[in-house]
Simulated scan of single mutants.
Amino acid sequence: MFDDPRRLYFFFDFISHNAWLAWTRVPALAQRHGLQLEPVPVLFAGLLNAHGQKGPAEVPAKNQWMIWNVLRKARQLGIPLAPPHSHPFNPLQPLRLACCGLPPEQRHRLIDALFRATWAQSRPVSEPDTLRAVLAETGLDADTWLSDAAGPGKERLRQNTDAAVAAGVFGVPAMIACNAAGRRELFWGYDDLEYMDLFLQGQDPLGAREDHAAWLQVRPSAQRPR
């Protein structure tokens, strides 16, 4: 899975402000390289559990740093960013909705509307009334797609998250892309978009992976208790 060289896979959870920032840029990046953007909704909490991690919002000092970091980037890039209605919040319903079986263009429009509702409009996207309103604003029938989210959407989200873990995805936003030489690589975080762009241009600063083989041989000599 996630091995089609014609696609740029974008793994996201609406709970992530960095995923919102990346979402505003990744469609143009995919188009520039002639790739089809494939959004993959995943449950961030599921990734954290699978890899034994805490989320940034669960570490107060890290959470405070990330707020300033994201605000700084949004201000510099001219991306609208407003305080979320609450955070962390339960993203299951909007994620299941984002897994719906709409045609790609309509699904991208819905995902964009849900991201904007969360991070540009401070709306409570975990609440059914908000989801109904967003669907209506996007020109979609709320009953049809909320029913889809409550049924097939649950399984699609679970499968997406399990497949992402199997592919080595550990956080959001994450991207998987294949360059012209046929090398498939994972990129993580908004700040990695720059390096993914270089990778797809054939200008990866790392060069040949074989030149760095010694790094893969490093083993721990101490571990902290858990």
Score class of each variant (00 low, 15 high):
39 P>E: 03
123 R>I: 05
86 S>N: 13
96 R>Y: 00
215 W>I: 10
91 P>S: 08
178 C>Y: 05
47 L>Q: 03
77 L>I: 08
194 E>G: 12
191 D>E: 11
121 Q>D: 14
17 H>V: 14
203 Q>H: 12
165 V>A: 05
159 Q>T: 15
57 A>C: 12
178 C>A: 09
11 F>P: 06
6 R>W: 01
190 Y>E: 14
23 W>Y: 10
83 P>Y: 02
147 S>C: 12
181 A>D: 13
71 L>G: 15
201 Q>P: 11
40 V>Y: 01
10 F>L: 06
141 D>V: 10
172 V>S: 06
60 P>M: 05
176 I>P: 03
169 V>L: 08
48 L>M: 13
197 D>Q: 04
144 T>G: 04
64 Q>A: 15
178 C>N: 04
74 A>D: 04
70 V>T: 13
74 A>K: 09
110 L>C: 07
96 R>L: 00
222 A>H: 10
129 D>G: 03
111 I>V: 13
34 G>Q: 00
178 C>R: 01
72 R>K: 15
108 H>N: 11
65 W>G: 09
102 L>A: 04
204 D>S: 13
13 D>W: 08
186 L>Y: 05
3 D>Q: 11
177 A>I: 01
55 G>P: 07
50 A>I: 04
118 T>I: 02
223 Q>F: 12
67 I>S: 10
135 L>C: 07
45 A>V: 03
174 A>E: 06
90 N>F: 15
4 D>K: 02
8 L>P: 01
20 W>Y: 15
129 D>C: 05
211 D>N: 15
19 A>L: 02
64 Q>N: 15
107 R>A: 07
182 G>L: 03
14 F>K: 06
144 T>V: 11
218 V>Y: 09
52 G>M: 03
204 D>H: 07
155 E>M: 11
93 Q>G: 11
112 D>Y: 11
5 P>Q: 04
16 S>Y: 01
83 P>M: 07
111 I>E: 00
117 A>S: 11
115 F>P: 09
15 I>G: 12
122 S>R: 10
60 P>G: 07
13 D>C: 07
71 L>P: 02
27 P>I: 02
10 F>S: 08
159 Q>V: 15
27 P>K: 03
58 E>S: 13
81 L>W: 08
23 W>K: 09
179 N>Y: 03
83 P>S: 06
44 F>M: 14
174 A>P: 05
221 S>R: 14
12 F>W: 11
40 V>S: 01
34 G>M: 00
73 K>W: 14
96 R>D: 05
72 R>F: 05
217 Q>F: 08
56 P>K: 06
103 P>F: 06
154 K>V: 15
72 R>M: 05
186 L>I: 13
110 L>D: 07
120 A>K: 06
171 G>S: 10
94 P>A: 06
151 G>D: 13
16 S>F: 02
206 L>Y: 13
65 W>T: 12
220 P>L: 01
155 E>S: 14
52 G>V: 05
159 Q>A: 14
219 R>P: 07
40 V>E: 01
85 H>N: 12
12 F>T: 12
19 A>E: 04
64 Q>P: 10
175 M>T: 12
83 P>K: 03
226 R>N: 12
144 T>P: 07
170 F>L: 09
48 L>Q: 12
90 N>D: 15
6 R>L: 02
184 R>W: 06
7 R>C: 05
95 L>R: 02
125 V>L: 07
46 G>W: 01
